[in-house]
Design a protein around this nucleic acid. Structure first.
Lengths: 205, 205
DNA sequence: TCAGTTATATACTGATTAGTAGATTGCATT
DNA sequence: AATGCAATCTACTAATCAGTATATAACTGA
């Protein structure tokens, strides 16, 4: 506590507690969606977990579809950011791809990334669905681009980038279903192991 | 039409039309669950697609949870059968693993297999959930066993069978989400391509 | 002091839908 | 002829839950 804290909040402080509350609601919602599924989670449940009432959720986030859309948008935003960083990072195509895959896998074991994977397109209302798909397409193109680069510079095996992207993404999406965030295995370690397997293949070299 | 067909059905014919009706209801249900999601599909919707009424579904299959449990049980049954066949098939560990993976991928692009993948544990009522998990565990053990055999006979690269199983299964589960059953790509071809990628890895050999 | 804004609650409405009660028809068996 | 069972329907009940109307309290700025 410093001398400047008073019971009267400044505009900036208010803006920031509002942000914090909004984030807390979103965090509670995404965790419950991941644990129990979107349709098994009512907004009253989410409110109860936070000790607030349903209209407060509407105040901060809007209706249930908007809450879900915001969750997946955050997850997809993290993935897009990761893709952009990898594109600019140094090394061969293979190096850049592997850096991206590691980040990709970690995000998929995190609250919002898990939500992206666990949310089927059908769960969203049609307008949100289009947005959801578009963002996913963006990640997919970025991944294909990284693969194509690696094939071009010879650091990756020749392949069809589309099939390769589906295969790699599938493998690294799956932990969103089985990995227990409260469990002992650490996401980074798992990601590294899976990427090593995908890099070398199951056949002996 | 042969001479023996008459408007009066034998007991056997009746048993078999009953079976056919039951199967038709199940097929309609699983397809709609896959297209629109379990919670977005009401039993009235399923009945409407077949031109029947909801109580008829209860007559043949029971309540909504039982319908879903039956769908996933069929899919898992196909996978278990595939695992047993591969265990007994000839060739090296790698050969047997690849035969299984091919079948595994194909099943996952079929109605009931897709449903297995798309159904989260949370969707089922707790009693069914235990059964669902147990069957999935069985497939996972079978897969790990095949991998361990291949590592033992040297036809597979040394690896942790658990991580390898998660990685391979994840990659081959994913088409259940993106592959369009009405689309042009044929499941067998896709399966072969993915397995080649997984066998060789993305790094050049 | 009054009007406006923000944060929050209680209590309701309306829609959806799982599941059931009960009727009907027709064949099968005694 | 009578009883029972299989297959099917229409019409209802009851629960859940998204979303809203409305109240209140606190602070803000005029």
């Amino acid at each position: 506590m410093n001398a400047t804290d008073s019971p009267f909040a400044t505009a900036e402080q208010k803006r920031s507690t509002r942000e914090a509350k909004r984030a807390a609601v979103l965090r509670a919602a995404v965790q419950m969606f991941n644990e129990r599924g979107f349709h098994q989670t009512s907004l009253d449940d989410v409110a109860a977990r936070l000790g607030i009432s349903k209209p407060t959720i509407y105040h901060y986030l809007g209706n249930k579809d908007q809450v879900l859309l915001e969750c997946v948008t955050i997850g997809l935003g993290q993935l897009i950011e990761a893709a952009e960083q990898s594109r600019q990072s140094p090394g061969t195509g293979a190096d850049r791809l592997m850096a991206f895959l590691a980040r990709y896998a970690e995000i998929n074991m995190d609250d919002f990334g898990r939500c992206v994977i666990r949310t089927g397109d059908e769960a969203l209302v049609p307008e949100s669905r289009a947005r959801f798909r578009e963002l996913k397409r963006r990640i997919d193109s970025a991944l294909r681009g990284l693969i194509a680069d690696g094939v071009a510079d010879g650091s990756l095996a020749p392949c069809d980038p589309k099939m390769m992207a589906f295969t790699l993404a599938g493998a690294l999406n799956w932990p969103a279903r089985w990995h227990d965030p409260a469990g002992a295995e650490d996401p980074q370690g798992l990601a590294r192991q899976m990427i090593a397997i995908l890099g070398n293949g199951f056949l002996p070299r």
